[in-house]
Amino acid sequence: MAPVSDYVKIDKNPSLQVTADHRIEVVEAPIEKPGSGKVLVHIKTTGICGSDIHFWKSGNIGELKVLGNCILGHEAAGEVVEVGADVTKLKVGDRVAVEPQLPCGKCFLCMQGDYNLCQDVEFSSVYPYDGTMQRYKVHDERFLHKLPDSMTYAQGALVEPVSVAYHGVERSSVTLGKPAMVAGAGPIGLCTLALAKAMGATPLLITDISAKRLEFAKKFVPEVLTYQIDTTKTNQENAVAIRKIFGDSEYVQPPSVLECTGVESSINTAAYVVRRSGVLTVIGVGRGDINNFPFMHLSLAEIDVKFINRYHDSWPACINLIANKVINVDSLVTHRFPLEDADKAMATSSDPSNGNIKVVIED
C-alpha cells in the first residue's frame, strides 16, 4: 500500500466546477487513488486565471470548449499526501508546485522538447481534465516540482503565471540595455514586466486602459513608464503617443513589444509601436479571430510576430527567480478566499472594478 501521511484525514474533496451551461458550483468531487508514477497532492493554494473566467463566462477559449462538468484551476501548489507505485523523486510531506500539463511524451513535438505544443496534452482545467480548484488532486510526479522551504504555497502557485511570462520573454527580443514595452497590466503583464526588468531591458513602458492597474504597475516596478490607453483614439494614434514617450527617433523605439492582453485593439496598437526590424510577441489569449491586423505595416517594416502557447521547462527557473528574490511576486496577491468560497473568489476575480490583480483560493 502506498504511504499516506499519518496526520491527514482524506475524507472530503470540495471542488469548484464549471458546467456546460456556464454555471459554477462548489460540489464534492471523488478522491482518486494515485496509480503508478502518480501522487496525491493536497492543493493548498490555487490562483484564478483569466482562462478560468473565460471557461465560466464563454464556455470556450478558441477551440477549447467546456462540454461537461470540469473542475477549474491550474495555478497551484500543495503538499504530497500519498504516493503511488514507482514514484521515486517525491515522498509524503514534500511541498510542490504543480506544472499543470501532461504531454504524451511520444510525438515529435515532445521528442524535440516542445511538449507544450503536444496535441494530446492533458491540461488541468481544460475539459475533460479536472483542474486544481479541489482539495485533492492526483498528478504525475514528473510535473511536480519541489518548493524550497523559503517559498510559500502562494508563491508556488504563482510559478504558473510567471512561467507564461518567462516563455514569452524567452521567445521575444528583450535585450540588456534596450527599450521594451508591455501591453496590459494584469497578472501576466506584470510578471512579464518584472522579467523584462530582470533581463536588463531599459527603459520599460507598460500600457493599460485602467489607471488603477497602471498605478499598481508603478508600485510593482517603480522605474517603469506608463501610458493609459485612450479609447477615444485610434490604435495608430495611441501608438504615436506611446512612441513620443520613448523619444523622437526610430532608433530609441522599442525593438521588443510584449502584448499580454489578447485584445484586438491592444495587439494592433502594439504592432504600430514596435520599431522596424523588431519583434512583437503576443502572449495574451483572446478571441479566435483578429480583424484589421496591420499585415502590410508589419510586412514592410520586417517586424516579426511571435506567439506562445503556455510554457515548457520553466518551473525550475521560475522557482529560482522567486526563491532567490530576483523577482518579488507577493504583492500580486490582492484577494484570498477559502476553498469552500471558491465561487465567491471567481466572482471577485471576474470584476475588475474591485482592483483585484490575483485572487487565490486557499485550503
Rank of each mutant, 00 (worst) to 15 (best):
V182Q: 02
A183Y: 01
P187G: 00
I188W: 10
G189E: 09
G189Q: 01
L193N: 04
L193E: 08
L193V: 04
A194V: 04
L195K: 04
L195W: 13
K197G: 10
K197E: 13
G200K: 00
A201Q: 04
A201S: 09
T202R: 06
T202H: 11
T202Q: 05
P203A: 00
P203W: 06
L205H: 04
I209F: 06
A211L: 09
R213D: 02
L214D: 04
E215S: 11
E215M: 05
F216T: 03
K218A: 09
P222Y: 13
E223Y: 02
E223R: 07
V224P: 08
L225C: 01
L225F: 00
N235P: 12
N235V: 09
Q236T: 04
E237Y: 14
A239L: 02
V240P: 13
A241K: 12
I242M: 08
K244N: 10
K244P: 13
D248W: 00
D248T: 05
Q253E: 05
Q253N: 00
Q253C: 07
V257R: 03
E259I: 01
E259V: 04
G262S: 00
E264Y: 01
S265L: 06
S266Q: 01
I267A: 05
A270F: 00
A271K: 01
Y272N: 08
V273P: 03
R275H: 11
G278F: 08
L280C: 06
L280H: 06
T281D: 09
T281N: 10
T281H: 02
T281E: 12
T281M: 08
G284R: 10
G286P: 12
R287P: 08
D289G: 02
I290S: 15
N291S: 15
N292R: 09
P294A: 03
P294T: 02
F295P: 13
F295L: 10
M296N: 14
H297C: 08
L300T: 15
L300V: 11
E302D: 11
E302Y: 12
E302G: 00
D304R: 15
V305T: 14
I308K: 15
R310C: 02
R310Y: 11
H312C: 14
H312K: 15
W315G: 04
P316F: 07
A317P: 08
I319P: 12
I319S: 05
N320R: 12
N320M: 07
L321C: 14
I322E: 07
V326Y: 13
V326A: 12
V326R: 15
I327H: 06
V329M: 11
